[in-house]
Design a binder for these strands. Structure first.
Lengths: 346, 346
DNA sequence: CTGAAAGCGCTTACAG
DNA sequence: CTGAAAGCGCTTACAG
């Protein structure tokens, strides 16, 4: 039918909604309506349209659809580093949550650099994302103004600026860290080394605060030693080499970030020392490998799935009610004291 | 000027190319030309356009731009699992390569499921990606027909179907695995356990082939024991529990995939055994934690950056010359025999 | 119940 | 050197 109309369907080209309309003998507008399940359409037409869709293998182009629609269907996710399995698991959780939600997840990384974080967020905004989930690199989001300007729904995770006007999901950093110290003290430890990243990050500040609170209660605040590390294993290792070179180690080390846990273990290993005989080790952030080592490494377990779920729910809520006051959610961590911590007999 | 034209620039809306054109007193077409550095435009106009762009903070919407352009500027990447730091590092490598290339990377995961892989690829095709980089879940890409139909440039990595018509980047699985066995034999090991994933994956087949080749040369082929594992730590652990229950372990284990390395170590630890005294362990795929354990775990190092670079280069070449015959590239692995392997004195 | 028209934000011929 | 017009693939009022 209509034999002299141009035959647009050559190989290598996807069928468009116009191709479907032509084949089903209706208008593109009607096809669109049926595809989105809107409005009333004659049953016959519906059947013809579905048949045409099947025959041509038609699938809508969601990007083109979004162009006319007011809202976009992409949620951007910015994590500091894909190589860290903690964030890898987080991406996986969000991917699962996005599935079937009508939103598509686009995950990018900031490589722990503020400028890169800003660039990534701007790029995501160029895509007109509906929402943004960010694990900030530092206390303040560099791209904050742009996000606010464009009124993009935003949820901050993990390392969360105190005074921002965004939704946030945190773990109970203070309480979890205090609990670690209490437990270490109960097991006889008095001199404790704390490995931290820059205190620009609020999660580090909170964790350290929890440590000091518990230390004070136990009367060992003066025997807490703080070693500052970079954000990745490489720089954290440098810090540890320097510390170990100074001699006389405490009886226990508590790493407030995953890469520092690795750095401590690597340096212990390199010097032929033994965990926990020479040094007890506890790490914030539990990842798979910590349970396969000998001994397994004690950890503060952040419930990644719960964090992601809380963040996703809040994102959906925010998208529905942009004007609601920002919410701040907190999720509980769990301690798992594994073989890497010794009980001191003294 | 033009005071009675509608003032479209309210807060929360991004400026469009029309806003820039109006402010600079030129047409949108001219703005577009200047922005893409094409054609000749009067210096004055260029200056006014740039000023307007700056004043409004205009940034083009790359998705809208792509709509009219024939080629898309997105490269899709499909990996099996974000939680595996091996793939996490791979995503990070590609992200770095994409930067400044004019292409945007969109990374998704197949969760080691063929159906999910197919769905993810179809979704990426819906986005009209320019290219696709895939680490296939099994030997055959479920979405192969769609990709071929739409003539999308595709590069396959790591687990590569033999007979496909796509570009591929592999490591020297056979040779690297053979080298591990030779080295183990040289250190006195004769009974060796091999932990593998489904042999549907060509990389597993090749690695096992390398193992058997070297074993035959050394005359120990009959003492190679193959244990099949699932693709993740959970299922691999089940397989290991079953094997360890059967008693009498060999002197060495070679895991052909990362999750199996973890499963072996976990089971060794759980039973109070010691690496390498009770069991020497070597793993395919090197990830950070393997160097911080006691002892550090011997590994076949896949040079992720090189793999990614080769794949990216090939992608760019393929995009430029779609009709060239498919290429198959190979990258060399390196062995690092660390403390997890004992020399047998017998 | 349905379709023609306009529009999303940009680019691409084409005519001047 | 520049702009009007058409178009990318879809959706959204709106008129019938």
């Amino acid at each position: 039918m209509a034999p002299d109309e141009p035959q647009r369907r050559s190989t290598g080209e996807r069928p468009t909604i116009h191709d479907v309309a032509r084949l089903a003998n209706v208008s593109p507008a009607t096809v669109s309506k049926v595809l989105r399940g809107l409005g009333a359409v004659k049953a016959e037409s519906v059947a013809r349209i579905h048949a045409a869709v099947r025959e041509l293998g038609f699938r809508v182009d969601p990007l083109a659809a979004n162009l006319r629609r007011s809202r976009r269907s992409i949620i951007g996710l910015v994590v500091p580093d894909f190589r860290n399995p903690f964030f890898g698991s987080m991406v996986a959780s969000f991917e699962r949550l996005a599935e079937g939600s009508g939103y598509r997840l686009v995950a990018v990384s900031s490589a722990e650099k503020v400028e890169r974080e800003a660039a990534q967020i701007e790029a995501l905004l160029d895509w007109r994302v509906a929402g943004l989930i960010v694990v900030p690199t530092e206390a303040r989001l560099a791209a904050e103004t742009s996000i606010l300007d464009q009124k993009v729904a935003t949820v901050l995770l993990d390392r969360v600026p105190d005074e921002s006007s965004f939704d946030k999901v945190n773990v109970d950093n203070i309480e979890a860290s205090a609990a670690v110290i209490r437990e270490l003290v109960a097991m006889g430890h008095k001199r404790i080394m704390i490995a931290t990243a820059t205190l620009e990050r609020t999660n580090m500040r909170d964790r350290l605060a929890g440590v000091m609170m518990a230390a004070q209660e136990a009367g060992i605040a003066d025997r807490i030693e703080v070693v500052q590390c970079g954000p990745d294993v490489g720089t954290a290792t440098e810090a540890m080499v320097a510390r170990f070179d100074k001699g006389k180690l405490p009886s226990a080390a508590f790493a407030l970030l995953g890469p520092a846990t690795m750095a401590i273990l690597r340096e212990v290993e390199r010097r032929g020392l033994v965990v926990p005989a020479d040094l007890s080790v506890v790490g914030f952030d539990d990842v798979e490998w910590m349970q396969v080592t000998h001994p397994p490494i004690a950890a503060v377990i952040q419930p990644i799935d719960q964090i992601a779920e809380a963040a996703w729910k809040q994102m959906i809520a925010r998208l529905a009610n942009p004007a609601d006051p920002p919410r701040s959610l907190e999720v509980q961590c769990q301690l798992d004291f594994r073989g890497s911590v010794a009980t001191l007999s003294s």
